[in-house]
Design a protein around this nucleic acid. Structure first.
Lengths: 320, 320
DNA sequence: CTAGGTGCAAATAATTTGCAGAGGC
DNA sequence: GCCTCTGCAAATTATTTGCACCTAG
């Protein structure tokens, strides 16, 4: 692994430090300073404990390592590459920890800190308790370091598939309900797009699973509110009662905004370059969809003009 | 304060321990062992550091105190009476911390741990960063220990008011839309109930503010998704497109379930006995509302019988 | 009387630091 | 040659423990 980009300017080459860093990065989970010291000693008995501590400290300031405290009275360190903000479930019995991501929690924390005018540097969540294995004795599929990236890709793809599926349903229904022929045409076109996306995502998902068949059984890593039903599901639900065209457009605009956000956010985090490309491309297309819907909303509003029945609430489409 | 209930069976009376405990409980924020030692020394120089540590330890096992680690290399302790699960914002600059509650985060964590078959003992969230005062120099109204209870009551009442307001709107609309006269009658009756509740809550809110006029300016302590719009807001929104009576009933059932949960949960946590009583009473009434709606749903379903147009999705009301 | 609480001083355990020497640039 | 890294041992810091004594029940 090339570490040159990680070394801060002015840092000096040092084979010992390099060896410690390398050993550290090769570790799966969360290492103690002492554990790392023992590992280092195994390779080179001429390295002192202080150097390990100093290197760990340096890695933290350099952003390579992340200090975590599981309440054991000593610190643990994890490589901070990959997912910058994950949270921990820590077993009080076997002292192992597993990780998860939750955009929803991140979003709520943003709300809270904004309300308090607090500028977040870092958030940590630790859930202490008893893990499945310690409680039942049944060994559950683990989420070790190597698999994390694939599991992340799997979860992101699953959410994406659900989203496109719900999007397809939303636009199909909207097209069926639409009174205005131009509006119907747009809904039909967007339904087609979502169908395309769905195909691409399902194929990528199948490819991913093919590379590692154990992947499907592994526990969820990325938790996301829209995951189960898809981001458009609520919108599709709203259409059930029957709505006018303007309202359908409005709902679509909101859903596209959310799904754009989703694809952008997780596209950025993807390690797998193919998945990343798909996500970022889709993010762009969802943005285009949204613009198209906004334009159509304005146009339809103008066409309906003043003879449109008055209604409480805003009539302008959201612009952000 | 009577501590007899807090002392574990077999514990021996001890004036020194009692004094330490009392001093600890009188503290506002999060004390370190050493800070407490200094405080204790001020009152009785004959108390040793070890006794303070031992008492702190004892308080933790007895459930009186809660150990928190803000990453300073030493532990802090806070009284664990009152709100059992709050989270912390910690300022890296002035090292003070402020607290918040979020039911939404609690709910998400429950989902995550359930998915991993993890049995939670305790969850902690720490957000590190820079507080408003350190960043801007403007002193913001604090959330000190004494005020926390009142601020909690204020926030709970605000959410409750919003909920009843949205409930009133929901039932008014539902009554206006209802085709079935019996259904309309029920909706009208529930609207009346919500109006009553609203009056009670607004009065209580005014009383609370009267006891401490600075209360309104203090920052939010209890964060809750339904807070801004009220728990029925989404339901009321759904009615906008126009729905049939069965669907309106179904939406009402869901909203009543959520608002029952809300009143129950926070009623249990209320310290202020008047607020507590109101909340628990309302929780009961919301449960009755829900039962009423479910009964009506079944009755209407039966009355409409087989000549009701078929529709995808479940036709049974949720039972939990 | 006796179990448990308490003070003092010494022990522990993780981590940091002073300093003399080694090594990269 | 200079500046930084490094090892070793000593220092530091929060917390715990051994032990003799004390005190409430």
């Amino acid at each position: 692994m090339d570490l040159s980009g990680l070394r801060p300017a002015g840092g000096k080459r040092s084979s010992k430090r390099d060896r410690i860093v390398q050993l550290f990065l090769a570790q799966k989970g969360h290492v103690t300073a002492d554990e790392l010291y023992d590992l280092v000693r195994g390779e080179d008995p001429g390295i002192g404990r202080a150097t390990v501590y100093r290197t760990l400290q340096w890695m933290v300031t350099a952003g390579i390592a992340h200090k975590v405290d599981f309440g054991e009275g000593r610190s643990r360190y994890e490589p901070s590459l990959r997912h910058p903000r994950h949270f921990h479930l820590i077993c009080n019995s076997c002292h192992r920890s597993s990780e998860f991501l939750s955009s929803d929690i991140e979003a709520i924390l943003e709300e809270v800190t904004a309300a308090r005018n607090f500028e977040t540097v870092e958030a940590e969540i630790k859930v202490f308790g008893i893990c499945e294995e310690c409680r039942t004795g049944i060994k559950a599929p683990a989420l070790d370091g190597a698999a994390t990236e694939s599991v992340f890709a799997r979860d992101a793809l699953r959410i994406a598939v659900a989203t496109e599926r719900s999007g397809l349903e939303f636009y199909s229904r909207a097209a069926a309900l639409a009174n205005d022929p131009r509006g119907r045409e747009i809904f039909e076109r967007l339904a087609e797009d979502e169908k395309d996306h769905l195909g691409t995502l399902e194929q990528r998902y199948a490819e991913l699973i093919a590379t590692d068949p154990t992947l499907e059984a592994r526990p969820t890593f990325l938790f996301f509110k829209g995951a189960a039903q898809g981001i458009f599901a609520e919108g599709a639900e709203k259409l059930r009662g029957g709505v006018d065209d303007l309202r359908a457009l409005l709902i679509g605009i909101r859903c596209e905004r959310d799904s754009h956000k989703f694809f952008k956010k997780y596209g950025d985090r993807f390690e797998d370059s193919e998945g990343k490309q798909i996500f970022l491309e889709f993010a762009e297309e969802e943005r285009e969809h949204r613009d198209m819907l906004i334009k159509e909303y304005r146009a339809l509003q103008a066409r309906l003009g003043i003879n449109r029945p008055g209604r409480r609430g805003s009539t302008a489409p959201p612009t952000h």
